[in-house]
Design a protein around this nucleic acid. Structure first.
Length: 890
RNA sequence: GCCGAUGUGGCGAAAUGGCAGACGCAACGGACUUAAAAUCCGUUCUCGCGAAAGCGGGGUAUGGGUUCGAAUCCCAUCAUCGGCACCA
């Protein structure tokens, strides 16, 4: 392939020039309310990209897809008179830099600095209009100081169930504050990878193996920091409804939170010879097993109890005779990896404990088993087995010959054994004959009256395992004294990680920080916590820091937070508000706009963050909101997911397939504007779509046509403003296409339909290509409309126009977005289709003003219609003004 | 297994109850050129009849339904992608 291929237009001569100018003049800086050039009349608009991890391999074409979309909206909104916050930063703590450090000894800070520099160069080469003065980096002490500070807020607060809010720990009246803190320590099973010598996060474990290296991962209990996100489950679920997010993402979060309604039922343990429970009979806690069920109406069908093998109560009730079997089974389960334990289609396993429980409704003695299909982490770690109406219980009962008792009558024609839907209660004296929902209500009431159970809601969401045994993360601002943890004082932040030469994991599960003997020693009696925070910590609140990234007194200034994270004055999408009307409305305290949810107005990123990042960030936001630091309860008002860009072969881009496209290679050949336009022209933003180099060429050709609309080339190959561009009135057709383009592009940017906006601009350019004179007014309009998509070429052409036509003042970015005139779009006549029995048979021109009756008459006068209707009865004529007339005949 | 999204020319797609295939890619033909590239103009869903202009039939994964009219709404099936996966 010839590298010397002639450029269709000289983008290489002006793209770098404009990028330098934008950078030097900081023209995309968004002033904060306390800055001199802040204009209070402008409404705010906060447009956020998911900030990247600056990896060693640089950006790929997937990153800039979302970034280009937001950049278009940002540039458009500025021209619409908004004060636009459009920042960028680096989520820079993380495993790859640390792995690299282990291999080479190069400090992760150095690797990170280099990678950030490369990423920033790449982004600037695409011409994004970020406010670089607000750039942040999660590994910068001035940033992680506040990540640590937020952790202290979590540590020093609790969730008050009465107010349903996070409150300072000082308002907690109980004895043991450590039992309610939002950040707490617990011994929990973690994913331990012996081969890598480290603990892995769930998301780093794929099919029971480490994502990196594919080594076996085992469960092992370790002392960990946890965040009590489960207390917020209800609010995280309820407050999802009002957000303007894709329904699919909301559903993923709902499923992740996993709310289910049911009842807790208390089963007393029966006394039996040889049962250790006998020795503790006055200690009621050991004598009752609480189970969670979503089907309390099937209580009469419970023929056994199953406990999770990890349930601590197992020790207490196992009989001496069964102890060996039970211990053996528990040891077996413990050694199993998650993969082995959840392997589908496998047979149920379990053992009998020798103990029995009493069913509260019928006083029946039923055996207590343990089995690994019951998890300690959900509900109470105990269930009642109702084999007739639960698939898993049925499998278990068949495996171990336990009785199956039908208590729900299935609808006609369905087998009652194994029926899990709603039916009618039978063999259940208290609720016989009741449909399932009523049966549930009645039996719960019966249990509650007698203190044998209660209505309960359970969530699948678990508390968040927040510590990692790694070097390259935020150290916890915690010290240990005589086995007890205590928080550092705010004034001791930031707490920097220790300098280390050896980043290797210790192999024992002890974090690498433990090797820094000096650093660990806090005082004679106290030592520092050696775990570090996960990568999510920095990304949980970065959008807040962008509002006021240089503030050294606070994580975000109050005024800046109120302004940027407060109400959206105008919204992208269906509802749009002209800024003047919006401001008036905003000033009225009763207005609907003023009472909008607020937050980031548009957040664009990939679906891979559908649950974790987006859930964690909402959780932190709510805690900080409850504590009075923030003005709105939700961080991200509108969320849009961009689709994945596949390789040219239709496969996922990866080194393995050799189909990775480097944006800088594309830009070298076709320029940044063509790259941007192609990415937006490929198809709908949300859709997955394959890359096509010939498609890029098409976008490049389009821009070259725009270039030649205004520029001409002399013999020497030098370009200058075309003499065809003149201050002439556009003709009627030109005026019409101009205004149709204004309307279409404006609407399409609002709905993020960039592909069709570009198609319309292509139509515009095609319409003007062969015009002998190019009316200046129409050319100016095109340049402004195209500017958000192709900022370099339009800036250059605008400047060229300005040299000749002195009325054009200032840079193109300072221009107002044009408004279309609906009157210019109105045609005198319109072509309509004539259908007979729904098939198009003719087309005629009718005046725009034609009434339905007139259209009908014209349709019936058509020769073709008369031919086809000859000898038949006209049953009906349907007239759709300006579109179609359908004549129905028999 | 459960939940969700998607399915339209050779390709990316447009049209979300009213003329299917806008716009672009690719292909083919023409103009310009000594020639090529670039550029400009034109053709291209499919089948039948016709020398042609044209006329007619079919067509939006498959099968049904609602409607004067369906790519669009409803039901079922299939395929692809994504998420969850013994959550009681």
């Amino acid at each position: 392939m010839s590298r010397e291929r002639r450029k269709p237009y000289p983008f290489d001569q002006f793209e770098p020039k404009w990028q330098r100018r934008w950078d030097e003049w900081q023209i995309f800086h968004a002033p904060n309310p306390d800055e001199r050039n802040f204009d209070p009349a402008k409404p705010k608009f906060y447009i956020l990209d998911m900030f990247p991890y600056p990896s060693g391999s640089g950006l790929h074409v997937g990153h800039p897809e979302g970034y280009t979309a937001t950049d278009i909206v940002a540039r458009y909104k500025r021209m619409r008179g908004f004060n636009v916050l459009h920042p960028m930063g680096w989520d820079a703590f993380g495993l790859p830099a640390e792995q690299y450090a282990i291999k080479t000894g190069q400090h992760p800070a150095i690797t990170t600095r280099e990678n950030i520099a490369r990423f920033k160069t790449q982004l600037q080469r695409i011409g994004f209009s970020y406010d670089w003065e607000r750039e942040i980096n999660t590994t910068d002490p001035r940033y992680y100081k506040w990540t640590q500070w937020i952790f202290l807020q979590l540590y020093n607060s609790w969730f008050n169930p009465e107010t349903r809010k996070a409150e300072p720990i000082s308002t907690y009246g109980g004895e043991d504050r450590n039992s309610v803190r939002l950040a707490y320590v617990a011994d929990v099973p973690v994913n331990w990878c012996p081969e890598l010598g480290t603990v892995l996060a769930n998301e780093e474990v794929v099919d029971g193996k480490s994502e990196i290296g594919g080594f076996a991962v085992v469960r092992r209990p370790m002392r960990q920091w946890m965040l009590r996100i489960t207390r917020f489950a209800e609010r995280l679920l309820d407050e999802l409804d009002a957000l303007d997010w894709p329904e699919g993402i909301k559903l993923l979060q709902r499923n992740w939170i996993g709310r289910s309604e049911g009842a807790e039922v208390h089963f007393r343990v029966a006394r039996a010879p040889g049962l250790r429970i006998e020795e503790d009979r006055e200690r009621d806690a050991y004598a009752t097993i609480r189970v969670f069920t979503t089907r309390p109406d099937t209580l009469y069908g419970a023929t056994y109890i199953v406990l999770s093998p990890e349930n601590p109560v197992v020790d207490r009730l196992t009989t001496a005779a069964d102890r060996a079997t039970v211990d053996d089974y528990r040891a077996q389960v413990q050694s199993k990896s998650d993969l082995e334990r959840t392997e589908f289609a496998k047979e149920k396993t379990g053992v009998f404990t020798g103990a029995y429980a009493i069913n509260p409704v019928n006083s029946e003695r039923i055996p207590i088993w343990i089995a690994d299909y019951i998890f300690m982490g959900y509900g109470t770690g105990a269930i009642m087995g109702v084999p007739a109406h639960d698939e898993r219980d049925l499998e278990f009962a068949r495996e171990f010959d336990l009785p199956v008792r039908v208590v729900v009558q299935a609808p006609e024609g369905q087998e009652s054994i194994g029926f899990v839907g709603d039916g009618t209660a039978i063999n259940s004296p208290i609720i016989d004959g009741l449909p399932t929902p009523e049966g549930k209500r009645k039996i719960i009431a019966w249990l509650e009256e007698r203190g044998l159970g209660s209505k309960t809601v359970n969530y699948k969401l678990r508390d968040w395992l927040f510590s990692r045994q790694r070097y390259w993360g935020e150290p916890f601002p915690i010290v240990w004294r005589e086995g007890k943890h205590e928080a550092l004082h705010e004034s001791e932040l930031p707490l920097d990680p220790p300098p280390l030469d050896d980043f290797k994991p210790t192999g024992t599960g002890e974090p690498p920080l433990a090797k820094a003997k000096e650093w660990i020693r806090y005082s004679d009696q106290a030592t520092r916590e050696t775990n570090t925070m996960p990568q999510w910590a920095g990304s949980c609140w970065y959008y807040l820091r962008f509002c006021d990234s240089k503030n050294s007194d606070r994580f975000v200034g109050e005024e800046a937070e109120r302004y940027w994270m407060g109400n959206s004055i105008a919204e992208i999408g269906n509802r749009k508000a002209e800024s003047k009307a919006a401001i008036e409305s905003f000033q009225n305290p009763e207005s609907e706009i003023r009472n909008r949810p607020g937050g980031v107005d548009l957040y664009v990123g990939g679906t891979e963050h559908a649950v974790l990042h987006l859930l964690y960030a909402r959780f932190w936001h709510k805690v900080l909101f409850d504590l009075g630091y923030l003005s709105k309860p939700e961080p991200f008002q509108r969320l849009v997911n961009q689709g994945v860009i596949l390789g040219e072969d239709g496969r996922k881009m990866s080194k393995r397939w050799g189909n990775v496209i480097d944006p800088l290679d594309v830009i070298a050949d076709y320029g940044a504007d063509a790259f941007r336009c192609y990415e937006m022209f490929m198809g709908p933003l949300e859709q997955m779509k394959p890359w096509s180099m010939t498609g890029v060429e098409g976008a490049s050709r389009f821009l070259a046509r725009v270039w030649r609309l205004l520029m001409e080339e002399n013999q020497a190959g030098e370009w200058s403003l075309s003499s065809a561009v003149q201050e002439i009135e556009p003709n009627k057709a030109q005026l019409k296409v101009t205004h149709a383009t204004i309307r279409k592009v404006t609407q399409d940017i609002e709905t993020l339909s960039f592909n069709t906006a570009i198609a319309q601009m292509m139509i515009f350019v095609n319409a003007f290509t062969n015009a002998p004179g190019k009316p200046l007014s129409a050319m100016c309009t095109l340049l402004i409309l195209l500017n958000p998509f192709a900022p370099h070429i339009t800036s250059e052409l605008w400047e060229k126009l300005g040299e000749k036509f002195h009325d054009l003042r200032g840079d193109i970015t300072a221009q107002r977005w044009p408004a279309h005139d609906e009157r210019l779009l109105i045609e005198d006549e319109v072509e309509i289709a004539l259908q007979v029995n729904g098939k198009v048979r003719d087309r005629i021109m009718v005046p725009m003003t034609a009434t339905s009756a007139e259209m009908e008459a014209m349709a019936l006068a058509s020769e073709r219609v008369q031919q086809l209707a000859a000898g038949k009865t006209i049953l009906k004529v349907v007239v759709i003004p300006k579109k179609v007339v359908n004549v129905v005949v028999s």
